[in-house]
């Protein structure tokens, strides 16, 4: 096991799914890790990951994972299908790439359903409609007054939003989303 691997923490949200026309799933326990630094992109390429060409984009990579570029020097690898470290972060770093422990720093929520853009419009100022915010787009912005990362991508054949917020705000954001979706139930 890599020395740089995060432990998989219990989710403060209980790992629950809230079903409905718009369903909200807690993926906080699912595996993810990141790299930052001038050599981050090169390090990932050498390790065989497909990486986005532009910041604020996400691409599908090997073994049903995703690689998200938050800047030209910061990347997250998302493994939504595994809550074990099946794809462990390599410790084969160049000196210009540093590990990011987004497993333990951020909660991960997924929104699925046909009216997710309308729901998100109630809590976020960025235009997240499909014509403006396409599959693979990433927005680093605020929702419900706190900082977040919002991504549109495909997951198991569904068009979904993944939302990452500071772990300590997980419960607050879940409550805000559950409250916002009441009119869509």
């Amino acid at each position: 096991m890599s020395a740089h691997l995060d432990p998989i923490f219990e989710s403060p949200l209980g790992g629950l799914s809230h079903e409905g026309n718009i369903s909200i799933h807690d993926l906080t326990k699912r595996h993810r890790w990141g790299l930052r630094g001038k050599g981050a992109a090169e390090t990932l390429r050498i390790q065989g990951w497909d990486i986005p060409e532009q910041p604020n984009r996400l691409v599908a990579s090997k073994n049903e994972t995703f690689v998200m570029a938050l800047s030209q020097r910061e990347f997250w690898v998302l493994d939504p299908h595994n809550d074990t470290a099946a794809l462990a972060m390599s410790n084969d770093f160049t000196r210009d790439a540093y590990p990011l422990f987004c497993q333990s720093s951020h909660a991960w929520l997924v929104l699925k359903g046909c009216q997710t853009s309308a729901l998100m419009a109630k809590v976020c100022g960025v235009d997240l409609r499909p014509e403006a915010f396409k599959v693979g787009d990433v927005a680093q912005t605020q929702m419900a007054l706190i900082s977040c990362i919002i991504v549109r991508h495909e997951l198991a054949g569904n068009d979904v939003f993944s939302i990452f917020v500071d772990q300590s705000y997980g419960e607050y954001v879940l409550e805000a989303l559950l409250d916002a979706r009441r009119e869509f139930l």
Partner: peptide, 17 residues
């Protein structure tokens, strides 16, 4: 709402800055 354009993220609410 006042908008500022971030060179990395595009136009955003000034409260994000």
């Amino acid at each position: 709402m006042k908008i500022m354009t971030c060179p990395l993220n595009g136009p955003r609410n000034i409260s994000e800055f």
